[in-house]
Structure formats: structure tokens, C-alpha cells
């Protein structure tokens, strides 16, 4: 029972960390129709910045998160203007190739600058210790990740479904030409959503560093995981991404606890089964691509 509970808590926290990183990718893929395999690379940049700020400059954890998000967005925006904007309406293969190329460049350059070692992000004392919940105590960091995940999910849902920006974004996704004709500046909308997705990935990279350690090949190692999660959930759906992260996180963590020698076997088996049964993902949007 104790094991089951601790596995469940770990799985839940891991799923939430995945969710924070992947929801940005889900947005770029579902709403902007870009298969951004470089998403993990931006999470990695966020992690490196946070590690530099927290460990080498000695600033607080909150500062590290904030600076990581701002720094990553500042790096990503020129890329959006120069590179991504040219592949918005190209084939999936071009998008995959371009973003794999960006990932390789990011890995090569960050390791050239920061050196090929594992980067740690020191946790503040409040999060490093276990917190007593009454029936059992769990690591404060796990609680923080779960809470952040819920806040992100709720905030995004509100932003997309209930605000003017969300309406403009959905209009631009639905029909770019018509949205432009109605005076919506779609380029700014796209850039803003891209920045939002990148900021979330940096945030997720930092808070999820306990589960997915920041290391030289981070962007490549988890590229497939992120892509798979989004595709299982159905691109562009917040609920779908949440469901996929929790499901796959649970399968992954349980498999690692109970049958570590199988590695990711069950994870990918589940992926194949889900994608074959729901080709559009668990809660994919019904309309077709393009």
C-alpha cells in the first residue's frame, strides 16, 4: 500500500512536469500547425539558464525560473522570425527536419559554451524537505510541480477559451485570411503564442529538472518523449495533453518501479496501442490538418 501510494504520487508529479513542458508543444502543433521537435531544446536552454543563475550567480529559485523563462523567450523570438515563420505552411517533413536541425545546433552551442556536464538546479530549502500532509509526507518539490501543473492548465484554458486574445488566436487558426481581413494581426498573435509556448517549456524544463535532469543531450533524449505525449493526447487540446501526460507518466513510473529491466518497453507499447486506436490522439480536434 505504501509503495502503491508513493508510486502514485511520483507518477502524478512526473505527469504534471511532463504536462508543463508538453502543453506548449501541443499548442504550437495543434494551433499553429508546426511540428516543433526543438521544443525540448528550449526546455534545455531554460534549464541551463536556471542552473547558471541559481548555482553560479547564487540567486534564488524564483529568480532562476523567471530569468530562465525570459532568457529562453529572448533567444526563441528571433528564431521564430527568421526560421519558424518560413515553415508554418510547409510539409511536416520540412518542419521535422528544420526543427531537428535547430535542436542539433542548440545542443552543440550550449555544450560549447557551458561544457558537457550534468547541470543541477539547487532547490530552495522550503521545497527540498518533505511536507507532512497528515496521512503521509511527500517531497515539497513534488507538491510544487503538481500545483504549478494545475495552475498552468487552468490558466491556459482561461486564456484560450475566455479572453480576447484566445478568440483572436482561435480565429487565426481557423482561417488566417479571414482573421486578417477582420483586422487581427495574425503575425503578432502567432509570435505571442509561440513565446508563450516557449516560456512554458522553459518553466517546465526548470521545475521538471528533478525528473528529467538537465544534461548535454537533454533536447535529443526527451524529444521523442515530448512528441509522443503530444501526439497521444491530441495536438492542441489541453485536456488531451493532461490525460496523456498522466496516463503515460503513470505507465512510465510504474514500469520503472516494478520492472526496471524493461526500460521504456511498456511506454512505447502503450503509445502504439493508443495511436492505433485513436489516430487523432485521445482528445484530438476533429478537423483535419491544413
Amino acid at each position: 500500500m505504501q509503495t502503491a501510494l508513493s508510486i502514485a504520487m511520483d507518477a502524478f508529479a512526473y505527469g504534471m512536469a511532463l504536462f508543463i513542458i508538453c502543453i506548449g508543444l501541443s499548442l504550437t502543433m495543434g494551433l499553429m500547425r508546426v511540428v516543433n521537435l526543438a521544443h525540448g531544446a528550449f526546455a534545455m536552454i531554460g534549464g541551463y539558464i536556471a542552473s547558471y543563475v541559481a548555482r553560479d550567480l547564487g540567486l534564488g529559485y524564483g529568480f532562476a525560473i523567471l530569468l530562465a523563462m525570459i532568457g529562453t523567450v529572448l533567444i526563441a523570438l528571433p528564431l521564430e522570425r527568421l526560421l519558424y515563420r518560413r515553415i508554418y505552411d510547409r510539409s511536416e517533413l520540412s518542419q521535422v527536419l528544420m526543427t531537428i536541425g535547430i535542436t542539433f545546433c542548440v545542443i552543440g552551442i550550449t555544450n560549447y559554451i557551458f561544457g558537457p556536464t550534468l547541470k543541477t538546479i539547487p532547490l530552495p530549502t522550503g521545497l527540498a524537505h518533505p511536507i507532512d500532509l497528515g496521512f503521509r509526507s511527500i517531497a515539497g518539490h513534488r507538491l510544487f510541480v503538481i500545483a504549478s501543473g494545475l495552475v498552468v492548465a487552468g490558466g491556459l484554458w482561461f486564456l484560450i477559451e475566455r479572453t480576447g486574445f484566445g478568440i483572436h488566436l482561435r480565429a487565426a487558426v481557423e482561417n488566417v485570411a479571414m482573421a486578417r481581413a477582420l483586422g487581427i494581426r495574425t503575425e503578432i498573435i502567432y509570435a505571442a503564442s509561440f513565446a508563450l509556448a516557449i516560456a512554458l517549456s522553459a518553466f517546465g524544463g526548470v521545475v521538471g529538472a528533478e525528473f528529467l535532469p538537465i544534461e548535454p543531450y537533454y533536447a535529443l533524449r526527451y524529444m521523442v518523449t515530448f512528441l509522443v505525449v503530444v501526439s497521444v493526447g491530441g495536438a492542441g487540446s489541453i485536456g488531451g495533453a493532461l490525460a496523456a501526460c498522466l496516463l503515460l507518466g503513470a505507465i512510465d513510473v510504474t514500469g520503472r518501479y516494478l520492472m526496471p529491466e524493461f526500460g521504456n518497453f511498456f511506454f512505447y507499447l502503450a503509445v502504439i496501442l493508443v495511436v492505433c486506436t485513436f489516430p487523432r490522439g485521445l482528445m484530438g480536434r476533429a478537423r483535419s490538418h491544413g
Binding site: 518560413r86 528544420m98 531537428i100 536541425g101 545546433c105 545542443i107
Partner: peptide
């Protein structure tokens, strides 16, 4: 890796 990445980007563009 940097070189391969740059080449890929250049090819797509």
C-alpha cells in the same frame, strides 16, 4: 552536431 543542424536548416530553407 552544430554543423549537421546548420546544414539541415540550410537545406530546408
Amino acid at each position: 552536431m552544430t554543423l549537421v543542424g546548420a546544414v539541415l536548416i540550410a537545406i530546408v530553407l
